[in-house]
């Protein structure tokens, strides 16, 4: 079962990474209100996944440790927020926003594929606990993907035709 532990570890890292990315994007695009508020909500989903992954791994004797990817406010976040406010009237951050949404989407896709692998392994090994974990978390990852995709679709026309 070392393979499953490996994916648990990779996904634990991937969800922590996505939570951090979502929080950073919320700060960097503080003046894009819908992005900012929804990204914070979605970061909470990923932090929840991190905790549940750690619990499942613990039960398997694997200690993933570390924080849940919870964000600690610091100089960097304050700086991001202030920059966003200073740039509120500029069009250029639009391009940066599209890039950030693309990165979020790709991270979520990566996580989704790992959830898929866990689900398949759970099926093969009849591991109810693993299947329950995937059933609980993977739908939210798919919703994260859909949201980033939607925001790109909605915002790209205005951003790209106005520069």
């Amino acid at each position: 079962m070392n393979g499953v532990n490996l994916i648990l570890r990779t996904l634990h890292h991937g969800e922590k990474h996505l939570a951090g990315q979502l929080t950073a994007v919320a700060e960097r695009h503080r003046t894009e209100h819908e992005i900012c508020h929804v990204a914070i909500d979605l970061a909470a989903w990923s932090r929840g996944h991190v905790l549940r992954l750690a619990e499942t791994a613990d039960a398997r004797g694997v200690h993933l440790g570390g924080s849940s990817g919870a964000h600690t406010a610091g100089v960097l976040s304050a700086l991001r927020e202030k920059t966003a406010e200073a740039m509120a009237h500029r069009p250029e951050p639009g391009l940066l926003l599209l890039r950030d949404l693309r990165e979020l989407h790709l991270s979520a896709v990566e996580n989704s594929l790992h959830w898929e692998m866990l689900a398949q392994a759970g099926q093969a090994g009849r591991d109810e606990r693993l299947l329950a974990l995937v059933a609980r978390c993977h739908p939210q990852t798919l919703r994260q993907m859909r949201w980033t995709n939607t925001m790109i679709r909605n915002l790209a026309p205005q951003i790209l035709t106005s520069l």
Binding site: T31, E32, H33, E34, A88, H89, R90, P91, P93, G94, Q158, I159, S162
Partner: peptide, 11 residues
């Protein structure tokens, strides 16, 4: 709200 955001950001 997005119309006002587009106006804010200049597009």
């Amino acid at each position: 709200m997005q119309i006002f955001r587009y106006a804010e950001q200049g597009s």
